[in-house]
Structures are given as C-alpha cells and as structure tokens.
Design a protein around this nucleic acid. Structure first.
Length: 175
DNA sequence: GAGAAGATCTCCT
DNA sequence: GGAGATCTTCTCA
C-alpha cells in the first residue's frame, strides 16, 4: 500500500495523500490487535471482507483509519499511520485548524482529522465508494522501504510490522 | 457496576 | 518530558 494514494471526497472537493507509513495487525495470535480479544462490536469490521474500511476511536479522542486485508471471516487490517498531502492541502489545513502545511498528516490521528474521516466511514467499501478510495500511485521500491516495530503498543513489541518510506518528511515519529 | 488501559495528539513547563 | 482529553472493552467483584 505504500506509495498508493488515499482519496477522500468532501463536497465538491477531493482531498488526497500518498501513503508513506503503515502498520499490520493480525488476529488472535497478535496481542495488540483488537481482533485478539475476539469479535466485539467495535472490531467487527476486521472480520469482514477485504477492501472495507475499519475506523475506530482511540483514547476517546482520535479516529484511526485501517483497511481490512484478510479474506472474509479472517481478522486482519492495515493501519494507515501517515500520508503525504497531494491534493486539497488548503482544505486539510482548515480541517486541522492549522495555518501552515507542517505536521498536517504525519500521524494516524492527524490524517483522519485532515481528511474528515470519522466513525461514519467505518465499513465503507473502498472498491466502490465515491467518498473514499485508494488509487494506484507511484509504487515504492523495496530498497526505499524501512521496517520497524509498531508504535504505541505495549505487547507484540518484537514484531517488525511497521513499514514506511525511508527519508520521507511525512513519516510520524519513531518508537 | 467500578476501575484500568489503550494502534494519540496538543499544550504546558 | 508530562498531563489531560474522555470512548470502548476487559477484568473483577
């Protein structure tokens, strides 16, 4: 998914950003994954078909945007942690209440605010939604992809399941 | 039914 | 470098 473009329609405007940082979350055997607790009301989307959007609220404050990746009935999703703004930057600044382009979308909670993504987008289908979709962007060469442990988790710290574009200014802070 | 912890960000010192 | 915001779920009584 690194290098592809996440696009969002807000009224007549399209807001978009190139994905530069992701994290993978699996099922029962992956402690920090919501799916490890079993199928709950919040995490239900993770068990559904690939291509659906899984949005949830962390710390009662920030929305996290994920893409369901495993086949139907198998839990698994990829968290989008950061994007590089490409289209509609001015609108994103308004959504974030910022006067500059710095730090607009370099974190999972920041990019959902910039793109106007909330719980309402949970379970949308990226394949046929007119409001939210992913386009093939420039692919990222393997040699440009860096790998590290996931951020903000207290369990599953050994697994290197965070992937990001090396040297990109919009990647969030390290662990 | 209460308490704790969490895939975070901002503002304050 | 640390507190606060405040929703969802789990754990324990």
């Amino acid at each position: 998914m690194l290098g592809t473009v996440l696009s969002r329609r807000e009224g007549n405007e399209v807001l978009a950003g190139r994905i530069v940082e992701t994290e993978a979350y699996f099922g029962q055997d992956d402690p920090p994954s919501h799916a490890s607790a079993g199928r709950t009301r919040r995490s239900e989307t993770m068990w559904k078909r690939p291509g659906l959007v899984y949005v949830y609220l962390v710390y009662g404050v920030h929305y996290m945007f994920n893409v369901v990746t495993e086949r139907d009935r198998v839990p698994g999703a990829v968290l989008i942690r950061a994007v590089e703004p490409t289209t509609g930057t001015r609108r994103m600044m308004e959504n974030r209440g910022k006067g500059s382009t710095g730090g607009l979308t370099d974190g999972p909670g920041k990019l959902t605010e910039a793109l106007g993504i909330t719980l309402e987008e949970n379970e949308l289908d990226l394949v046929n939604s007119a409001e939210l979709w992913i386009e093939g962007g420039k692919t990222v060469e393997d040699s440009r992809i860096e790998r590290s442990t996931r951020i903000g988790v207290s369990t599953g710290k050994e697994e290197k399941l965070r992937f990001y574009v090396r040297g990109n200014d919009h990647v969030s802070r390290g662990p």
